[in-house]
Design a protein around this nucleic acid. Structure first.
Lengths: 254, 254
DNA sequence: GTAAATGGTATTTTTTTGGTATTGTATAGG
DNA sequence: CCTATACAATACCAAAAAAATACCATTTAC
């Protein structure tokens, strides 16, 4: 991770960052890195000594740049530990009783949602996928993985597997998977979700900016056509501290 | 066996395992060993002292690496015995689309369910309870807490608060709260559940027999009469490693 | 029951990281 | 010319994390 960050603080980038004293340039550089998401909420900055070395300035200069951002509340210092991008998040609710896209869902709550694609590709199905999607031997499956982000806060990781028959080329999906399926006249009408809690492993925790072992809400969804044929299989992992579902139930028939 | 494992934990492999503190490298190494099947489910890890020697680090460092994997639920420690790769726990499903009692639910799945009462009593309502149940000043609330056990395995903690008006004496409830309410002609017809994931605190983890920080499924339910009046407010905490919910959705109306 | 093996914990030391005081340098204003 | 101020560098301080050491508690084997 540190080697990636060294790029942010290279002397060349600082000089190109406009006029003013060194610490102002550094501050702008840092501010930009946070703003564009290069440094995400909860991330630790490299140690001041390292930044100073990368940027070829003294540590005090680095501190002065950071001072301003701390005063703005963008960064938080912890003595002996490090400097971190501030992280409070508000909880979001989702109505379980309807199946909507993440983007629509966030928009309804007045949050700006975006995604970062982690992967798009077409593959030979895993045994799980074959069974769940009911695939014949020789058929392929499209896999799409993305990081769901709301108000610049990573909120969930989503892995979708779609039968290649319904989506031969995953690259065409840019925003909504459902919209793309709709274009192809593929309209799921029913879905089953399995909801469970799990402790996050390192890779997922890292992506979502939470500590290893943090509670996550795992949701597996299979959606079906009217014919009963399975279309799509999605596994999502939501941050437990930032998301919850609301379900409305009616008491009655078994 | 031991000589094979020494290869896994050799200092060279640790150094090559990327950046970060020793214990992080060790954790990655262990995680990988489990993932690729070098360490299979049920296998015992070598003793911490041996790993420490192989990897040329202290035992505490080894423990710290293992700590994280235990927090993720990948490994399980047994004092005096060893550390083992976790066996998969058979998960129990619950249909979210209907509101049933725990006992019925388990019975349907062929499991013997029982409860241990942790508390029964009548109290002055907390602000939360007053607001949610819509209680007037001076009214009381019945609180019932129990540990839900399925096949001698603690599965959930349940705290119920019922308006004193509907249940003046909590002591009369022996098995089913709903049955008792039914007797009094109190029939909730609708409920709203909020589902979220959380890391368990010590007191809850102790009751459920899981490590502190383990993922739990938290479910808050408020049930209503036909009139719209709130009857009962229940907070449940299920073991994340042994329970999941299944929800069936229909795509359509907002 | 005892001893060996194994995980658990408390304490200490070392390393890492932010915090602060001091000094030097250049520039603007009197 | 001197001084006040902003900027930057050096050196040292303090808190936290990482790692090592030593000892405790439980389980298992005999």
């Amino acid at each position: 991770m540190t080697e990636d960050l060294s790029a942010i603080f290279s002397p060349e980038r600082l000089s190109g960052g406009g006029p003013g004293p060194l610490y102002v340039k550094l501050r702008r550089t840092l501010e930009e890195a946070v703003k564009i998401g290069r440094l995400k909420q909860g991330d630790a900055l490299p140690p001041e000594r390292d930044i100073a070395e990368f940027a070829a300035v003294s540590r005090v200069t680095v501190r002065k740049a950071i001072d301003d951002l701390v005063a703005e509340g963008i960064l938080v210092r912890r003595h002996g530990s490090g400097t971190f991008v501030t992280k409070p998040v508000s909880k979001v609710e989702q109505r379980l009783s309807q199946l909507t896209s993440f983007t629509e869902d966030m928009a309804r709550r007045g949050m700006t949602a975006r995604s970062e694609w982690l992967h798009k590709g077409i593959h030979t199905p895993s045994p799980d996928e074959m069974m769940i999607l009911g695939l014949a031997a020789g058929t392929k499956v499209s896999r799409l993985s993305r990081l769901r982000i709301a108000d610049d806060q990573p909120l969930a990781i989503e892995h979708a597997s779609v039968s290649g028959e319904f989506l031969p080329d995953p690259a065409v999906v840019t925003t909504s998977l459902y919209a793309e399926l709709e274009k192809r006249q593929v309209r799921p009408v029913r879905a089953v979700q399995r909801i469970s809690a799990t402790n996050m492993k390192e890779s997922d925790a890292g992506l979502l900016g939470v500590p290893v072992g943090a509670a996550g809400l795992s949701i597996e969804r299979i959606s079906y056509l009217g014919s009963g044929r399975a279309v799509e299989f999605t596994r999502s992992l939501y941050r437990g501290d930032a998301y919850d579902f609301v379900a409305e139930l009616t008491i009655g028939a078994t």
